[in-house]
């Protein structure tokens, strides 16, 4: 369709739109846009406050993150490698996005302590990002020559990853295993294999069906939102912390909304919120 024809189609479609949408917003998705914009505004305000040097609340301790240094230290003492997996999915997954700062932290520590980091990947594009992150971490630590390009690699795009990791763990016997990202049914397999070789395990995911295996099998687990807050916690950077404060403010609003919604529903029998969801 040509541009002018498309614009005419848009104008024609706009005639049927409600005034509230002003022809601009997609009906049915406007409520979502408002929710995102509100969240964006809260995040922006908190970022500006952090940049202006306003005092920022601290994130309460996340033992799973604190344990990373301890686990790497243990691997160093034992002369065994650290295993790190960023999950099964691609770059579009927010859990994958959330792992980058954690990998950077782990890689910097490994570089500093001269501990081998094994980082097999399941997605080719994620592999390239992870490879860059680890490479840079070694560079930052002033030990670029210690980086072994064969230790960050693409292993397989499907369940072959599990068999490959089993084999790898059995032969390399890592002393620490960090699983940070979106995992599916392989979660239990990776956790158990890590347990069998005696690795200290730290697991983080927001994939609900796999959470029980991380909580039950790992020494430390970060549950869902904790894995997203970790990047701010790890760097103690005010701007990143500001975004977590924004998250909390928005969550508080949601908390109040759930209470008000319950009272409203009990009195009136329905809430106007469902109309907003589909607005």
């Amino acid at each position: 369709m040509s541009l002018s024809a498309s614009l005419q189609a848009w104008l024609a479609a706009g005639k049927g739109a409600t005034a509230a949408h002003l022809w601009l917003f997609q009906p049915g998705a406007t409520g979502s846009l408002v929710a995102v914009l509100l969240f964006g505004i809260v995040v922006y305000v908190m970022i500006q406050r952090a940049r202006a040097g306003a005092p920022m609340r601290q994130i309460h301790p996340l033992p799973g993150i604190d344990a990373i240094d301890e686990a790497i230290g243990r691997a160093t003492e034992m002369g065994r490698p650290v295993f790190y997996s960023s999950g099964d999915t691609g770059v579009t997954d927010p859990m994958t996005i959330a792992h980058y700062p954690i990998l950077a932290h782990v890689a910097r520590r490994c570089a500093r302590y001269d501990t081998r980091l094994l980082q097999p990947n399941e997605d080719p594009v994620v592999y390239t990002v992870n490879d860059s992150i680890v490479r840079e971490a070694y560079l930052e630590a002033g030990r670029p020559e210690a980086f072994n390009p064969d230790d960050v690699w693409f292993m397989n795009n499907s369940s072959g990853y599990i068999t490959g990791v089993w084999d790898l763990m059995q032969k390399q016997r890592p002393a620490a295993s960090i699983l940070y990202g979106d995992f599916y049914y392989d979660a239990i397999m990776l956790v158990e294999m890590g347990g069998l070789v005696g690795a200290v395990q730290i697991g983080a995911t927001a994939q609900i069906p796999e959470l029980p295996f991380f909580v039950a099998g790992c020494d430390y687990a970060l549950i869902a939102e904790e894995m997203y807050a970790a990047s701010a916690y790890i760097g103690h950077e005010p701007v990143l912390t500001g975004t977590v404060v924004a998250e909390d403010l928005y969550k508080f609003a949601m908390f109040v909304l759930i209470v008000v919604g319950a009272v409203w529903l009990s009195i009136v029998g329905s809430t106007p919120f469902s109309s907003f969801v589909h607005f």
Binding site: I97, P101, A246
Partner: peptide
């Protein structure tokens, strides 16, 4: 919420490990 915050941090260039 964690995912939204992460996405916003990425788009605003605050989180840029990639």
């Amino acid at each position: 919420l964690g995912a939204f915050a992460t996405a916003i941090r990425i788009l605003l260039g605050i989180e840029r490990a990639h």
